[in-house]
Amino acid sequence: MSEVQLELEILRYDPEKDQEPHFKTYQVACREEWMILDAVNHVKDEVDTTLSYRWSCHMAVCGSCGMMIDGQPKLACKAAVKDYADKKVRIEPLANFPIERDLVVVQDDFMEKLKRVKPYIIRKEEKPIEEGEYKQSPADLKRFKQFTLCINCLCCYAACPEYALTPEFVGPAALALAHRYNADSRDQGLAERHKEISKPEGVWDCSFTDTCSIACPKHVDPASALQQLKITTTVQWYKELIGMGDK
């Protein structure tokens, strides 16, 4: 097994000690199959146990380890060290979020926004369980399936210049999930979600830079969801104008 030598510059910040964040450098001899997360874990275990960051699954599905790697928002568990071989690599907490400590960012804002867009099935009338499943054709499923794949890693928020400039913006992941439910054949909650989505800080703050989709490690393509949502929202606005607002 060959080795990859990395020089990690990790942004450190402990609010109890530091006025502002600063970089600390670590030399790490990585095994070639490692991900950046493995290198960071190595630092934590063997070099500096005071380093704080979030991680868990190491298979790009729990969404814990989003961080800025060389200036780009990525999952540390999915960024191969090979791609940064023999380079200086900057590791910073996800952009556009306040830094809690080291690589840990404050995520409360997203959690609150997600709740606001009502990301769950809304029905006028629930069907009793005894009557079985709602039928949904594979085509109906495919219409929204892609947008169910969001792992809430928040890389898209870190990539979004609109969110950076206008923190009130509901943002890519939350809105993509709103669209996911709007597009689900079992759902009847479009009109209810519309109230939130059509607000100025809703979907219209998106200027379609497409950077969220470029950053998305799960190929959800939130930019696509948001553009579709703009169309839906416009149609809904006209429908409400002529008194046909319900889905």
């Binding site: 910040y13 609010p15 502002e20 964040p21 200036g71 952009a95 556009n96 306040p98 830094i99 809690e100 404050v106 210049p161 950076a164 400039l165 200027s207 830079t209 497409d210 950077t211 470029i214």
Partner: peptide, 23 residues
Amino acid sequence: MAYVRPVSKTCWYLKDRNYTIHM
């Protein structure tokens, strides 16, 4: 206290190639 990194209101689009292309 959590630390909020400053964002440039005037030159943000120079930070990233994709932002520049978008602008």
